[in-house]
Design a protein around this nucleic acid. Structure first.
Length: 257
DNA sequence: ATGCCGTGGAAACCACGA
């Protein structure tokens, strides 16, 4: 069973790209972020025709998350991260799919640092830690997958010294990632590839993909009830080289049944 | 190097992303 997280960066502009990738790679579960589409403009019919059940939480212009499931319907559990009724961003959706609880995350970017956007990121992280503690302790298998906008360590960025005051690499944010791990979450890709240089994002400019000037910011975290089923993990980095690509690449895990 | 590209939405530019 293959579970993938993919920041699509505008599902309107990326639909053909997405459908090709679904057809070629046939992932079982897909967590999408940055739909950049209002609820009513999500291309539901095209995705269902490709053989996927789907739930989504759209928003005009920005954000937006979705969970796709091949051959069955995701069973929605929530479409908001608890803890702040004032938060109007579409950044979280959670469902049960084939006996696994899936939390699809689009964490705030937080730049520029310092400032209100960074403060919002830290508040969002606080809420995530609260919710994640419950999920980590659950006897049910859970994966938290998404664009975390967190570079966990120096190994996960092409030139760490350039990023020390960036909201993706600030110490507060990396410490939050460590706190997640201490709740029992396993960073699937890093666990299976402890020494490899692995990126999931390359900027659109400065020829970043060709230079391999990337970041590892898309993650799949497994709770203790699930981690024993982890068989493989990786990044479909060639997809970043397709026509009209997102700046992120699909990042995946393979689980035993 | 602090938006050079790219998207969406509104307006022929602006906000936002990482």
């Amino acid at each position: 069973m293959k579970i993938v997280t993919y920041n699509i960066n505008g599902i309107g502009a990326r639909l053909q790209n997405l459908l090709r990738w679904l057809t070629e790679r046939t992932p079982d579960v897909v967590c999408l972020q940055e739909l950049k589409a209002p609820q009513e403009k999500f291309p539901e019919a095209a995705i269902r025709e490709a053989g996927y059940g789907v739930i989504w939480h759209g928003q005009k212009s920005w954000n937006g998350v979705a969970i796709l499931s091949r051959g069955c319907e995701p069973s929605e559990l929530r479409r908001v991260l608890p803890g702040d009724p004032e938060d109007a961003h579409s950044r979280y959706i959670e469902a049960t799919v084939r006996g696994i609880k899936i939390g699809c995350i689009y964490l705030p970017n937080g730049n520029p640092y310092p400032g209100p956007k960074f403060d919002y990121k830290l508040r969002w992280l606080g809420r995530l830690l609260t919710h994640a503690a419950e999920l980590a302790a659950s006897p049910m298998p859970v994966v938290l997958a998404g664009d975390f906008n967190i570079i966990p360590t120096e190994k996960d960025v092409y030139k760490p010294e350039r990023w020390v005051n960036d909201a993706l690499f600030r110490i507060e944010v990396r410490e939050a990632f460590v706190r997640l791990a201490s709740q029992g979450w396993t960073d699937a890709v890093r666990t299976l590839h402890p020494d490899a240089t692995i990126y999931t994002f390359w900027d659109f400019f400065r020829d970043a993909y060709r230079r391999d000037a990337g970041l590892r910011i898309d993650h799949l975290l497994l709770n203790p009830a699930l981690r024993g089923r982890l068989r493989a993990a990786g990044v479909d980095r060639d997809v970043r080289g397709w026509e009209k690509p997102s700046d992120h690449a699909p990042t995946w895990i393979e689980l035993s049944e």
